[in-house]
Design a protein around this nucleic acid. Structure first.
Ligand code: FES
Ligand code: FES
Lengths: 132, 132
DNA sequence: GACAAATGATACTATTAATGTATCATAATG
DNA sequence: CATTATGATACATTAATAGTATCATTTGTC
């Protein structure tokens, strides 16, 4: 299963490097060297982080990215939702339509409680903890 | 994200119906009517359950399936592993190769602890609880 | 001002995993 | 021995993930 997809994963690694060098601007070129990740893919990821206010971008020569917030305020959950959409362990898959049994479904009840558990855990993980 | 894929999901629903009728043989035809799931796909699923000792099959006319164990002994975790492979929230995705940082990686540590939490929860869910 | 080096915007392609089909063989019942 | 069921297995489709490509725009430096 994929709790974390590759774009989220790459974003974390990129942010860790940026966090560790947070008084200067870090370019995509540097990150590609550091992480060994495909450049166009990483660019797309960095752009999204920038659009979502997690990174601040600097255009032009010597440009690149800096953190837009403190690492303590960058949450894993936010990153996951940025790249993977709203956190949801499993939708009701039954017949692809919205399920009429949601309320009575025992499986759903179990999954919902599990989901809450996981979400609360992920909510607490910040970039600060990962980059130290 | 997909904690539970469709074949696991269908298998649960099929098992619930079989459990509720556990003194008789239930055929694929009946299950298709009951669940409205594509027949060939359901057949594949039932075969797998049978191979894995969760269902007992009866060939020939009036054939079909019965539970091979008590509902109390059929675990959600087992079903998930039957259809989705060994339970693992997220592998290290880094560079598609086995990661050399496993031990020092902070993200890995967090995910591992989360994984344990989830796995323990799922381990406790049985068909009995879902079919009542 | 021209050039180089960076990101912005966006459309496209490829790969992989999930989902679903089809077919023929084999067994049991009446 | 025909009918109705599962067994085995190969194939096809769809959707999600992962990755590329291209051109525009901004900025620093000579
Ligand atoms: S059947 Fe839809 S939520 Fe369970
Ligand atoms: S980088 Fe591989 S486990 Fe974290």
């Amino acid at each position: 299963m994929k709790l974390i997809t590759r774009n989220t994963d790459y974003s974390i690694r990129a942010l860790i490097h940026i966090a560790r060098n947070k008084d200067r601007i870090v370019s995509t070129t540097e990150l590609v060297k550091e992480l060994g990740v495909p450049r166009p893919f990483l660019r797309k990821i960095l752009q999204l982080l920038s659009i979502n206010g997690i990174l601040k971008s600097y255009k032009g020569k010597n440009g690149g990215f800096k953190l837009a917030k403190d690492p303590e305020q960058i949450y894993l959950l936010t990153l996951m939702e940025t790249f993977q959409g709203k956190f949801k362990l499993t939708e009701c898959l039954f017949k692809k339509k919205i399920c009429p049994n949601q309320i009575s479904c025992k499986l759903r009840a179990q999954l919902d409680s599990l989901e809450e558990l996981v979400e609360n855990k992920i909510k607490e993980i910040t970039l600060a903890q990962l980059s130290i």
